[in-house]
Simulated scan of single mutants.
Amino acid sequence: MNPVAATKMSGLLLRQLSQRVLSTSACRGLVAETSANLRHVGSVGGVRYKSTQATDAAQEEKGESSKAISSYWGIAPPKITKEDGSAWKWNCFRPWEAYTADVSIDVEKHHKPNNMMDKFAYWTVQTLKIPVGLFFQRRHMCHAMLLETVAAVPGMVGGMLLHCKSLRRFEHSGGWIKALLEEAENERMHLMTFCEIAQPAWYERAIVFAVQGAFFNAYFVAYVVSPKLAHRIVGYLEEEAVISYTEFLKDLDNGSFENRPAPAIAIDYWRLPPDSTLRDVIVVIRADEAHHRDLNHYASDIQCQGHELKEAPAPIGYH
């Protein structure tokens, strides 16, 4: 075929195709097909959109806030109320996690260093206490907030490492994972309580950031190298926490620090009377620290006697 004939044939073919594609009937068919496809997609995906719309409508009927989060996955947190029927306002803990603190515990107990490991742990804590005391002086609220951001670390680190150990060895932990995580959560709730009372300044937040970062890594290494040393250090840290809160109570009693009403979160968490004060909160927090002191010294004693933690049932719920 010569070039002229080929050009004519191509032009004829293009004209035929353009007439078919751009004809009114073809366009109508295309529109009809597209509409049918959209209706099909709507019928398939309509469950999702209709379910969301139904959820939104249900929320409006129930008078819920317009800011409520709707989820295609059907996840909805349960509505929790107090015993009197009022709404439960705390998302950081639930009513069944609240408890009544045992304030009868001996807050003056002290583990006397018996060997080189104990002495190293004791004097390490005493050395770390010096700069903290010089910086905070009698500013108990700021001191307590720093103390709690550090005190909540050991339980989480120990629980995490025991969790990994349990997975590696295909063995149970004797409940110690849960006990240590309970300790970490309890210490965190101390901080949440203090946050309701005072707001730390920017430089105090910077100190917390630096101290917590350094302590987390140091304690992680210590627990990997010697868990019994790590628990002994925490035991002595908790002894100092008890002393610190005892000094706080003295200043509340002599009027050096205002004994304001207890925060609502503390009243719900420790099941305190409605008319409780800050002093009542410090008393229960000090009791918690004393329990953590005993738990960590006990954990260290178990390992110092040549046993593993899993061989002794953990005191779960021992705040």
Rank of each mutant, 00 (worst) to 15 (best):
V4L: 15
S10F: 05
Q16F: 10
Q16S: 12
L17T: 05
T24C: 00
A26Y: 10
R28F: 02
G29Y: 07
R39M: 08
H40F: 14
H40G: 04
V41H: 11
S43D: 13
V47Q: 12
R48H: 08
T52N: 00
A54P: 02
D56T: 04
A57F: 09
E60A: 12
E61F: 06
I69V: 12
P77F: 15
K79F: 12
F93I: 04
P95M: 02
W96G: 04
D102M: 06
D106N: 15
K112I: 12
P113C: 10
N114E: 15
T124K: 14
T124L: 15
T127M: 14
K129A: 12
G133D: 13
G133Q: 11
L134P: 06
F136Y: 15
R139N: 12
M141R: 10
H143D: 02
A152N: 05
V153M: 13
V157I: 15
M160D: 14
L162T: 11
H163Y: 14
R169A: 09
G174D: 04
W176V: 07
E183A: 07
A184Y: 01
A184M: 03
E185H: 15
N186S: 09
R188T: 06
H190M: 06
H190I: 04
L191P: 01
M192E: 15
T193H: 09
F194S: 03
I197L: 14
F209A: 11
V211K: 07
Q212Y: 03
Y223G: 05
V224W: 02
P227N: 04
R232Q: 07
Y236C: 03
L237C: 11
I243N: 11
E247S: 10
F248C: 09
K250N: 05
D253T: 00
N254K: 14
R260W: 00
A262H: 02
D268E: 15
Y269I: 01
W270Q: 02
L272T: 05
D275T: 09
T277E: 11
D280P: 05
R286P: 09
A287K: 07
E289N: 02
Y298H: 13
A299Y: 02
D301T: 08
C304S: 07
G306N: 09
E308D: 13
A312R: 13
P313R: 06
A314N: 10
G317E: 11
